[in-house]
Amino acid sequence: MSEPVDSPSSPTFRRRSDTPFFLVMGGISACFIVLILLLLAADVVFTSPSDFIDALRKPEIQAAFRLTILSCSAAAVLSLWVATPLGYLLSRYRFPGRWLVDTLVDIPIVLPPLVLGLSLLILFHLPIFGWELEAWLRDSVGFPVTYQWPAVVLAQFSVACAFAVRTMRVTFDQIDPRAEDVARTLGCTRGQAFMQIALPQAWRGMIAATTIAWARALGEFGPILVFAGATRMRTEVLSTTVFLELSIGQLNAAVAVSLLMVAMAVVVLLILRVLGTGLNA
């Protein structure tokens, strides 16, 4: 009997280790994690509980907190209302000009915030044959927008909605459209299939979209400053508070408000985690 061609030659054993892999990957990752932790720790160390409470007792800051909660919630709910149909259309249909809509939706995400605010300001004050949107809203409708609270909501909505649309689109992309097709053969119109089959499956995504929109609205600053101004007790939200307190040298108050916003952001992230939407994982 002859030797098989592939007979194993005497093997040289070499034991290797995965440790360098974990050291390199972990080391690089840790840099970023440590940076974030240090940022938060520095804020906490800088302020004392009494400073924090003093800052939160200021009527201006309390007003800003109230306006922030209300305007963010309004912007988030508005965003969901717009993002659900838009996300569904983008996910389900190939219509002419879809690529254009898809690109336009992303513009508020990539636009520099100040530019967005400036664009809003110009839109509301651009004279079109002697007619002006802001003047018409103020005089005929009795609902002035610029430098008022509606401007805060609109500025927040413009950016928050773009993120909500992305979220809802991913949500509907992950839902099998075949069930809606079958629902249509069973007697549904497209509208009924959307309401009875697609929407009930999308609830997690809808909560995620609302939460993400809310968090984006919370962090909004540039467009609000330009379009709504930073009038204390009127159009001041927490992000503008930080800016205003800094500009009058009240570093303690600025840091206290920053910590408050960190806490609010953490709550929002926790909600996303608990829902386990997979969008944050």
Partner: peptide
């Protein structure tokens, strides 16, 4: 005609059951 107006029962290969409904609700849906 729209699919829903044709009165045709369709069982697709992938079945496409409705994930949010119970078995009884499937039978009641139409």
């Amino acid at each position: 005609w729209l699919p829903g107006d044709r009165q045709i029962g369709y069982v697709p290969q992938d079945l496409a059951l409705f994930p949010t409904l119970t078995v009884a609700q499937h039978l009641a849906f139409a």
